[in-house]
Design a protein around this nucleic acid. Structure first.
Lengths: 351, 351
DNA sequence: AACCAGGCTTAAAGCGCTTTAAGACAGGCC
DNA sequence: GGCCTGTCTTAAAGCGCTTTAAGCCTGGTT
């Protein structure tokens, strides 16, 4: 086999022209690679004159540092790995916010997505192999034991879901409080007969349902509590709406586990001839892009992506840079976003 | 905000323990690092006995290769960079498909997202610095000149949008054909008065509008052509619906630039007391998750993520592994997805 | 003149892995 | 035995960058 060290194959192209290395810049200026490295990273040492000449040459040569090499040589990678589901818009928003938060602390991000054929373990392995110093896990479904084991290797923060008895940091919204504020909003509008469509099994659903029940009690409506079976999707909302419209005494307001369920309810109600919010008010959860659609205009509970991610990154940075040990759970207050799907209840309506 | 501490700091001991290196595995087995490297990458050479012992030791020690180091040492990175907008569900689907296609050719992916504060140039620079051998650009808005310059550095394929006079590979769907099949479907259902809501400026909108006009001519409906001003969002659809419902002779079917516009139309029509599809049929474009929502059930044109990405990755691999030069545009046929928003036209309706 | 402090610069030792040429060895053949 | 074959193993040279200790000045101080 013939093989020259460099410049084989694609010979005649620009492409074959090796990208400039630190050494090339150094040679051009007539200094050592150490000086160039120092200048380029803004470290103290080099004189102003050297600085200028190096910068000029680097720009002229189109020098770009090689990430793999610098990663390898550096003691710390200053990389935070983010596991996400690339198909979720909510994750998209979170990633954007994590990016900004990380940047402020001088960290960069490595993204790794789960897909149908790529589970959370695979996604995390990629992150581990990429020298990440810490991990942000968005909506991890993995079990607590695995997460705890992972946390023994590097700081891990799980965003958006509670992790029972966890050996990891957790940042999430106070779901009970969120549902509570939804109920409070409806009560203020004069509603008393407020039903709740559940979100199936899972820690998140449990928390939200509890929030509904507590809030109803708090407002002296414990005997009005009505929880319908539900799930995560529009379909579940449609089914729940079918049950509701069949009732003799229909609720004047419905709180749904999440926006998708609420949208299912919304559509089924409309088809059944009910007007929202005139006949029935509706509240969702998540403040997903869906809820914001003009024609849906769903009143919903927002989990504040910026807040969550700020805390998540802060938690990691504290452990990385300030040596905090032990684990912590940060619970961020959610807030209600009032749109057009909620209106005055019967008590407040003009007869 | 509540925040409580939990647990203690046992973890630190484990964490401080350096992760095992190739050398550690080699020492454990009593062979050279070269042998271990060979075994771990499945290269020819080592005997079955050595293989087994190395594999066992690597597993026992929990060895994971360091990506940065292996990237640096390897002649080729076998990395494909993907620029995307992490907030777009459509991009999410594409990335998932790219992942699978790349894997089949033995390539791995590096993801880089644009955000509000991180433009396409920044995102691409990260990719370049990460030693990517080629780039997949999803929905690049950058101008052709910049893209062409980029392509001189490494193979680039732009997915989903035409690039006029491009010096890059392009993979996109045949938008004119897609709109044509939408019109054809409506004609078959007996519609003749078919309006089109435009998508504003931009190469994509131009192609789709042309598709509408050509299809109408082809079906002898050139004099029925009615193009309404539009845009990209639900709002634009709502505005267009307002115009349409004001007309004396309302169209029996409407084709929209994309799904979001169609959803705006759908909602406005319903509010105006029109039933879809009984009173008016509606077709969108993109087959976005939105269109699939049960209560929307939008007939739409799908761009076939798997097909697009298959071609995109194939184009890169041909240039990388088989030295193809020159540029190519692959136009994938889109296909109509019929759901519940289209129905028989007046001619076919029972009186 | 000897000495020192302080500012710049650089040689050199890695970072953890890949790759290849060359070495070691066993067996088969004349 | 000498020679050749083929199989397995490894030493060593990087990949492109960071980092540190050591070196070299120059201009004071004593």
């Amino acid at each position: 086999m013939v093989s020259r060290a460099r410049g084989c194959g694609l010979a005649d192209d620009d492409r074959a022209r090796r990208r400039p290395r630190l050494e090339d810049v150094a040679a051009d200026v007539g200094v050592s690679t150490a000086s160039v490295s120092l200048v380029l990273r803004g470290a103290a040492g080099p004189s102003a004159a050297t600085r200028e000449r190096v910068l000029e040459a680097a720009a002229r040569l189109g020098y770009r540092p090689d990430r793999a090499a610098s990663l390898l040589a550096r003691r710390r990678s200053r990389l935070i790995g983010v596991m996400m589901d690339v198909r979720s818009t909510y994750h998209g928003e979170l990633v954007e916010a994590v990016h900004e938060a990380a940047e402020q602390h001088g960290y960069d991000l490595v993204l790794s997505t789960t897909t149908r054929t790529r589970d959370e373990h695979r996604a995390v392995e990629t992150l581990l192999d990429s020298r990440c110093e810490a991990l942000v896990l968005l909506g991890a479904e993995a079990d607590a034991a695995w997460l705890t084991a992972l946390d023994r290797q590097l700081p891990v923060v799980v965003v958006g879901r509670p992790v029972p008895s966890a050996g990891v940091d957790v940042v999430r919204a106070a779901d009970d409080e969120g549902v509570g504020s939804a109920v409070g909003h409806l009560v203020e509008l004069g509603h008393r007969d407020i039903a709740y469509v559940d979100g199936g099994a899972g820690v998140i659903a449990v928390g939200r349902r509890a929030g509904y029940e507590q809030a109803m009690s708090r407002h002296g409506l414990a005997d009005q509590v009505r929880v319908l079976p539900g799930g995560h999707t529009e379909e579940d909302g449609v089914v729940a709406a079918g049950l509701i419209t069949g009732w003799r005494a229909q609720p004047t307001a419905v709180v749904a586990f999440n926006d998708r369920v609420a949208v299912g309810l919304l559509d089924a109600f409309r088809r059944a001839g009910l007007t929202v919010p005139a006949d029935v008010s509706l509240v969702g959860y998540d403040d997903s892009p869906l809820a914001r659609l003009a024609h849906i205009g769903l009143t919903t509970v927002s989990q504040d992506a910026a807040g969550l991610t700020h805390h998540a990154v802060a938690a990691l940075v504290e452990r990385l840079d300030r040596g905090r040990t032990g684990h912590r759970e940060v619970v961020v207050p959610p807030h209600l976003v009032v749109r057009t799907s909620t209106g005055p209840g019967p008590a407040a309506r003009p007869a």
